[in-house]
């Protein structure tokens, strides 16, 4: 698990700070973003595996951020963090491709566990893709040169 690249997006500065410390202690490389815009910027610049995304934020809200992430980086797994008492907003997120949702307040071990399984899923998916590519390479070795960079 040591090489999970995590991004936490929330408008509570203190939550970001503490959670980042806790996550890093558990061996997760963590970045933080205080708004949707900042989050998208970080994703575009650095390698990110899992995003913990608050639904309600000023400016661009969680659903919109999720939509954009999934559009550009479909392999990144997103865990929705919702403060509303209802799961309605979470359902909207799941339909749009979020991996899971967490109701606030959640304790950190729980969150950690979800991050790990999300990362597991991402790795499995990446392995599968790699396997397909390898298979293809074996059957059509010359195609590597044609299609490289397209996955």
């Amino acid at each position: 698990m040591s090489n999970v690249q995590l991004l936490i997006v929330d408008d509570e500065e203190r939550f970001l700070k503490t959670t980042k410390t806790l996550m890093e202690k558990r061996g997760v490389t963590t970045k933080t973003a205080a708004s949707g815009e900042q989050a998208l910027k970080i994703i575009s610049e650095a390698h990110i595996d899992v995003v913990i995304l608050d639904v309600k934020m000023p400016g661009m809200d969680g659903d919109e951020v999720l939509r954009r992430i999934k559009q550009t980086y479909p392999l990144i797994e997103v865990i929705m963090l919702t403060g509303h008492g209802s799961v309605d907003s979470a359902v909207v997120g799941l339909k749009m491709g979020a991996y899971d949702y967490v109701l606030k307040p959640c304790d950190i071990p729980d969150l950690m566990q979800k991050v790990e399984s999300a990362y597991g899923k991402k790795q499995a998916m990446e392995n599968k893709i790699r396997k397909v590519q390898v298979d293809r390479m074996i059957s059509h070795p010359m195609a590597v040169f044609d299609k490289d960079g397209q996955d």
Partner: peptide
């Protein structure tokens, strides 16, 4: 949520 993190 903040308190939860601090407690952890």
């Amino acid at each position: 949520q903040v308190m939860m993190s601090e407690i952890t």
